[in-house]
Write a protein that binds this DNA or RNA. Structure first.
Length: 280
DNA sequence: CGGAGTGTTAGTCG
DNA sequence: CCGACTAACACTCC
């Protein structure tokens, strides 16, 4: 999301919204007239929510959930086809496509396409950030000051839940999803099933460092487009971090560190991957 | 064909 | 308050 936020900020800042076209009612919550004619001041992010800030105090808040995409085109999709090899339902071959739910047109004739296969995602027009997430969000994981080691110790001490669920809990730490949770735990050599309050101070410090490092590396690689490749940069191109994944989605394959077989278990209904030899 | 799995999170129930 | 489970939905893979 940070990748998308940065790219949108660069492209949309200063543009005026000419029109919003809602192809799937549930994908847009708000009034078109509140945003049409308004100018984008900038684009921000909170947890996994992108915030397009307008000059009337309204934010267009976007949550992509599992299969959402935000694709920006200055020219029509036909004129500017993506060169990159593309296949599957998330390939950007034409725009709009069958998964396009909302189209926002700007005064430069550029268009922002909100594609969302499963339709879990949404765009909400809100006055305050508090309206978007039901529960309070924790500090941003990549904000090293807010996500302090001291704060992390406090969070861990309060929970006996598997550590993986705790670092993915947006009300405790904002911005860590399933892929990155798996990767950070591997890097910190901690089993995903370990009760949060069983981590030593040393492990907590290592894990915090791994979270910050992995997220920053993923941002440098412009996101992770694994397997079905739902994640796309706003150009429609894939990210690159999937090339550096160590355990996520690799059940049955050799651990890159020791060669033992990567295992998969279910935690909180999410696939959890780990090396039974390297992680303790 | 059936069932599991899919970068998420809110709601319900005990 | 917690933890466990489910739903929202569409599609691919085995």
């Amino acid at each position: 999301m940070e990748t998308i936020k940065r790219q949108l900020d660069e492209k949309l800042k200063g543009l005026k919204i000419a029109k919003i076209k809602v192809l799937n009612k549930k994908s847009f919550i708000g009034e078109a007239k509140e945003i049409e004619g308004k100018t984008v001041c900038g684009v921000g992010r909170r947890a996994k929510i992108t915030l397009i800030e307008l000059n009337n105090g309204i934010y267009l808040a976007v949550h992509l959930k599992l299969t959402g995409q935000l694709i920006y085109r200055e020219k029509s999709g036909k004129e500017k086809t993506l060169v990159e090899e593309n296949s599957g339902p998330f390939a950007i071959k034409e725009l709009p496509n069958k998964f396009t739910r909302v189209i926002i047109t700007f005064d430069n004739n550029g268009k922002l396409y909100f594609n969302d296969l499963r339709m879990f995602g949404w765009i909400k027009a809100v006055r305050e950030i508090g309206e978007i997430a039901k529960e309070k969000l924790g500090p941003e994981a990549i904000d090293e000051t807010a996500f302090s080691l001291d704060y992390f110790h406090q969070v861990l001490a309060k929970s006996r839940k598997p550590i993986k669920l705790v670092i993915m809990d947006q009300t405790k730490i904002a911005g860590v999803g399933n892929i990155y949770a798996n990767e950070t735990l591997f890097r910190a050599a901690i089993l995903p099933s370990r009760p949060a309050n069983s981590l030593s101070n040393k492990e907590a410090e290592k894990l915090r460092g791994a979270i910050i490092a992995v997220l920053n590396e993923a941002i440098r690689q412009k996101g992770t487009s694994d397997k079905d490749e739902a994640f796309r940069q706003i150009s429609g191109k894939k990210g690159n971090f999937q090339k550096f994944l160590t355990v996520y989605g690799r059940a049955g394959q050799a651990c890159p560190n020791c060669g033992k077989i990567i295992k998969r278990i279910d935690l909180g209904g999410r696939g959890s991957f780990f090396c039974p030899a390297c992680q303790h």
